[in-house]
């Protein structure tokens, strides 16, 4: 069993694993400087997880990957070739399940000049692909899945981790970002074929720098629509952020006021598109970057 501390900001994880696939991909995606392979008594991690491959009699020919956090196993095991993808999803789960010092919105966040765009959307809407289009235009990624908003402010804290690309979007994104680093492919997961992409150097470099939200974009990919932009009312913006917030119920009043403050102060758009560049161009225009 290997023990390694993954230092992502603002959380670190102590990972126990017996899967070489996991170690190899961690090193590839996060780079050696964010991994501590020989932690000592002065090193701590916020959360303890393990990704263990086991062979059971029922599935002798297919070893199974188990994800555990504090001896809790939140997911049904997966085939071992999906171990790395499972770990990444597991780390998202750990933060979403434990963290209540921030309002957490299930959304991607990107920033340019510390002005941040929030992309809340259900899986399959093209959120991660849009994310990569922004990165290809020089925006930095704060997170692909979890927007950490400081309560009652518009401040988002980066939680820089890989973006999760699925199925056809993998090839599309490889076209935009040919020099980026990609994980091994996990085939036939519940989300289809999945690859994790290491964020741009620029995103890593600014991983300690908070940004301030300006805009909410609800992306929906549709092969037949070039780019349709509809402004959202405050109420619609609020609904989007609220529906995608994991912990508004736990934060109670503080959560509600955080989200309504955001809805009052952010521009909201629903964008249906088949050309992600156009989405980025529009957002850059509204920010005066173009």
């Amino acid at each position: 069993m290997h023990e390694v501390i993954l230092n992502t900001h603002p959380f670190s994880f102590r990972i126990h694993t017996n899967a070489p696939l996991v170690l190899k991909n961690l090193e590839r995606i996060y780079g050696a400087e964010r991994l501590n392979f020989s932690p000592n008594s002065n090193d701590f991690a916020h959360y303890n997880v393990s990704l263990v491959i086991e062979r059971k009699l029922g599935r002798l020919w297919k070893p199974q990957a188990h994800f555990l956090c504090d001896e809790i196993e939140p997911f049904v095991p997966m085939d071992s070739d999906k171990a790395y993808a499972m770990l990444e999803w597991g780390l998202n789960w750990v933060v979403a399940a434990h963290e209540v010092n921030h309002a957490i919105v299930h959304a991607a966040v990107l920033a340019k000049e510390d002005k941040a765009v929030l992309l809340p959307a259900p899986p399959g809407s093209g959120k991660s692909t849009t994310c990569c289009a922004f990165m290809a235009h020089g925006w930095r990624l704060l997170s692909d899945e979890l927007a950490l908003i400081t309560p009652n402010t518009l401040t988002v804290t980066p939680f820089v981790r890989p973006a999760c690309l699925k199925n056809k979007s993998i090839e599309v994104v490889k076209g935009w970002l040919p020099n980026s680093v990609y994980s091994d492919i996990a085939r036939n997961t519940h989300k289809g074929d999945v690859v994790h992409l290491s964020p741009s150097e620029h995103s890593w470099k600014h991983r300690y720098h908070d940004a301030v939200l300006t805009t909410v974009v609800m992306p929906t990919y549709n092969a037949n629509t070039y780019c349709d932009i509809t402004p959202l009312t405050q109420r619609q913006t609020f609904q989007q952020v609220f529906d995608n917030c994991f912990n508004v119920g736990i934060l109670g009043q503080e959560g509600f006021s955080t989200l309504s403050h955001a809805a009052d102060n952010l521009e909201g758009y629903q964008i249906t598109f088949n050309n992600a560049d156009e989405v980025v161009a529009f957002i850059e225009e509204t920010h005066g970057f173009a």
Binding site: E54, K56, L57, G58, R59, Q64, E73, V76, P77, N188, T189, H190, K191, G192
Partner: peptide, 16 residues
């Protein structure tokens, strides 16, 4: 014990 703790759980069919 033999087949794993998830044997009595129902799983979501995986998308192919």
């Amino acid at each position: 014990g033999l087949f794993g703790t998830h044997i009595f759980k129902k799983t979501v069919p995986q998308q192919q």
